[in-house]
Amino acid sequence: MRASGKRTLLLAAFAFAAAPAAAQTSQFEQYQKMVGEDSPAELFVLVGADLWRKKQGPKNASLERCDLGKGPGVVKGAYAALPRYFADANQVMDAESRILYCMETLQGRSRKEALKRPFGNADKPSEMEYLDAFVASQSDGFKMTPGMSHPQEKRAYELGKALFFARTGLYDFSCASCHGEPGKRIRMSDLPVLSEPGPARAAMSTWPAYRVSNSQMKTMQWRVNNCYRQMRTPQPVWGSEVVNSMIMYLTVNAKGAVYAGPGTKR
């Protein structure tokens, strides 16, 4: 870097490269401190905001009139109040399921088309990843208040809880096998006890998240899906009762946390 003029300057490029695993936690913490609120997650929010307003689908409509639970067109604070029961769909929905519902109802898109590629990669993130990041960003600073009063909301919580402790898959794991005891790690990654409010708040208030190690925005639907992959089960269906109830259980455990996403993770 070369500076012209007499002004003083300092330049830092915050790169996150592959490093020995033992060094990863501290290196990541350093990165997180340096970037502060200026995480690449912001870039996904910007693209997501454009996609939210983009007219598309057979009805050539945007998602701006989407009712995320706070009324048509209200995005502020909506993410932090999900999952919840929606009477129009007669089911409990998380943010991504509700965004999909709006793609179907407002834009007239088929579920199949809209869900063709829910999980993207670094080269080509998915539409849902951008949209989820945008919707989540509009709840920054809001208290997390998932739905807990409707019978279906209570049931989703209870089903999620039962799933959390159910042994399944080729390796006999339940979620609690890894997330059941405090102070444990898998390789060098800390494992939060997601059945407890403290660790659940820290985790759930920062999803979706930009993962610096692979430059991707990851959502809660992906998070649950990927845990099951590692548990060696078949694939849970996107937006199914299993996945949405798991997200409900984890979010209720985190209730009261101040939402601070989209986050930045290792």
């Binding site: 089903l159 039962a162 799933l163 159910a166 399944t168 080729l170 099951y228 060696r232 089960t233 078949p234 694939q235 849970p236 269906v237 199914s240 009762e241 299993v242 996945v243």
Partner: peptide
Amino acid sequence: VQMIIHRDFKAKGQA
């Protein structure tokens, strides 16, 4: 719970 698990997962690859 077991019924819902069988309903909401789909075989994929070797799983």
